[in-house]
């Protein structure tokens, strides 16, 4: 089947929200969605990626930031299926570390290092980049208190 560029991006974005647990606003804010999709295409081939995106599309998620129980089960099945398991792991690693893990692992770009979700997840900052201000390491991470 023919998938347009914007459809691919849209599905990749939604799938990424589910795989990373980060909201669309956080993922879009990195400015890396297109670059990451390119990176995956480059290493695994567009066809392979399209197969994953198409299986994802078929689950027909209504709101990727708030899955129903049935959607969650379907996603779990998709992620754990033999054909998709390794690629979904790579996508998660890519988002969290900004690094492509393969035979030759590498950091995708300086931006991807800075925007690795791992920093936000642990309430820290990338060393040597995005300085948080002198002495702020003495305070709890800058997150909303519930």
């Amino acid at each position: 089947m023919k998938i347009t560029v914007s459809e691919r991006l849209d599905w990749f974005e939604k799938l990424s929200v589910i795989l990373t647990g980060f909201s669309r606003s956080e993922l879009l804010g990195t400015g890396l969605i297109e670059i990451y999709l390119d990176t995956i295409d480059q290493h695994l081939g567009e066809d392979h990626v399209n197969t994953l995106l198409d299986s994802f599309r078929k689950i027909n998620i209504q709101d990727e930031e708030d899955l129903t129980a049935e959607e969650s089960r379907n996603i779990q099945e998709l992620v754990e299926s033999k054909s998709n398991e390794s690629i979904t792991k790579l996508v998660i690693l890519l988002w969290y570390t900004g690094q492509w893990y393969g035979k030759n692992s590498y950091i995708v770009s300086s931006q991807s290092y800075l925007e690795g979700l791992v920093w936000k997840a642990i309430g820290a900052h990338p060393m040597g980049g995005k300085q948080p201000g002198y002495g702020t390491w003495g305070f709890p991470p800058l997150t909303f208190s519930s």
């Binding site: 804010g29 948080p132 201000g133 002495g135 702020t136 305070f139």
Partner: peptide, 16 residues
């Protein structure tokens, strides 16, 4: 110190 930390955070959110 906290004000400056907040300011850096504003810069990163602006970039987003």
């Amino acid at each position: 110190v906290k004000a400056v930390g907040m300011m850096y955070q504003m810069k990163y959110v602006a970039a987003e």
